[in-house]
Amino acid sequence: MIIGLPQEVKNNEFRVGLTPGNVRGLCKQGHSVLVQRGAGEQIGLSDESYRLAGASLINSATEVFSKAQMIVKVKEPQPQECAMLREDQILFTYLHLAPDPQQTKALIHSGASCIAYETVTSCSGALPLLAPMSEVAGRMSIQAAATHLEKTHGGLGILMAGVPGVAPAKVVILGAGVVGKNALQMAIGMGAEVCIFDRDIDRLRQIDTLYGNRVRTYYADPLLVEIEVCEADVVIGAVLLPGAAAPKLVTREMVKKMKSGAIVVDVAIDQGGCFETSRPTTHADPTFIVDGVLHYCVANMPGAVARTSTFALTNATYPFVEALANRGIMAALSHDCHLRNGLSVYQGHLTSEPVAKAQKIDFVSADELLAA
């Protein structure tokens, strides 16, 4: 198979979908890999390292898309990339389609077969290709909050850990999944006062067993969420409904009641965000203010630590890339129900029920298409 690796084009996105080590593995199995020049240069993965691994270096994304049978990326394709996809092509990347009807329409129109990292599952029901970036984003959310609590960055001028005689920042984390647990680890490590909400009592029990009285665990009762959010210095939005739009747990009215200078970090912004006041931002312009509350809603947070993120991501995605290359899409999807759960668009058909529900459009299940 001919596999294409284009350079990412999203604002301040420096991650790359394959490392030179991945390329070597694919080439040893008889596949061809086309790498756009400069794809990994910003994170120390030189064109020469890809060439020595066996890749062919290509000057433009247009040429990569035109020649490759499978495109491996990191972020969702931008409009100019969607326009280059074709019917006989596989796209393997993050998609986050639920809040993005324009991208959904473009991918359906392309006729390509599009598999979303974020909905590939494991035997335990976990999301193994989303988890590495959720770990990174969860940890980064506290770094971002600590920075933006500083008065010079628009915050109240609070030190996350406080000092003897002065209270630390109060941090509220909404969601105890991978993002929430990693945010919790960092917040506790920095000495903040932390509480975390979830509807999964078993998750809360695990956190209580691990951290004891260093963290307050709460069932996600809406009234209690409102009380804690309105008293917080930092609120981390870490809620995930796999493949679907994030629920709006914090309303505009709640934001109005928050402290002026408080920080919200909406890690769920890729799926539409869990604050009613959220809108996507970029690393170039990461924040905005609503009713005195600073919002940090960067849609590709892990892109800021792109080298760490690239290796964490490709450690998880490479076995699936290998399976798709070796078997072809139909055999790979038939063989692996977990990879099949990642199929979002197939030859002009939407195959994701959560996306269909979010956008109120028709879908056909992957199982039906394979049976046909």
Rank of each mutant, 00 (worst) to 15 (best):
F92S: 04
G243A: 10
F363R: 00
A183K: 09
L184N: 10
I361V: 15
V255D: 04
P77M: 03
P6D: 08
F320K: 12
I58N: 07
M160C: 05
C230Y: 04
Q185Y: 12
M1H: 09
K73L: 11
E41M: 09
H109R: 13
G342S: 10
A244S: 15
Y117I: 00
S260R: 13
L57S: 06
M301R: 01
E353D: 09
G17P: 01
T147W: 04
G189C: 04
I236E: 14
A126Y: 05
E276L: 03
V239F: 04
E76Y: 05
A245K: 14
E48L: 12
A61V: 06
N315R: 15
A246I: 02
P128Y: 07
Y346A: 13
V264F: 06
Y50F: 15
S46Y: 07
E226N: 12
S60T: 15
V355I: 08
E226V: 04
G272C: 06
D202P: 01
V293I: 03
H96V: 00
A316C: 03
G157F: 08
I269C: 08
A106Q: 13
L294A: 06
N12Y: 14
V345C: 09
V9H: 06
V229K: 03
T147V: 12
E13K: 11
A284V: 05
A146L: 07
V355W: 13
V265W: 07
S309E: 10
A372Q: 14
D367H: 14
L127Q: 03
C337D: 12
L91C: 09
M186C: 04
I2M: 12
T104E: 12
K360I: 12
M190P: 01
L91E: 06
G273F: 00
G162F: 11
E368N: 01
A144G: 10
I263W: 10
A116I: 02
C337R: 15
A112P: 00
G125K: 02
S278W: 06
S32D: 10
A131C: 05
G21S: 08
S134R: 04
V172R: 12
D270I: 01
H338P: 02
A356F: 12
Y50D: 03
I207T: 05
L91P: 01
Y318K: 03
D221N: 03
K28A: 15
E353I: 02
P77D: 05
V265A: 07
S141G: 07
N300E: 11
A53W: 08
F320M: 12
F275H: 01
L343N: 06
H283C: 10
Q78K: 03
A332E: 13
V74C: 08
V64W: 09
Q143T: 10
V264T: 12
K256T: 04
H295N: 05
M190K: 04
A366D: 00
I236F: 13
S32H: 07
K257V: 03
V23F: 08
V234C: 12
M254T: 14
G125Y: 11
L5C: 03
H109E: 15
T281P: 01
D198T: 00
L223K: 14
A98P: 01
D233C: 08
H335V: 07
S141A: 14
T287A: 13
M301P: 00
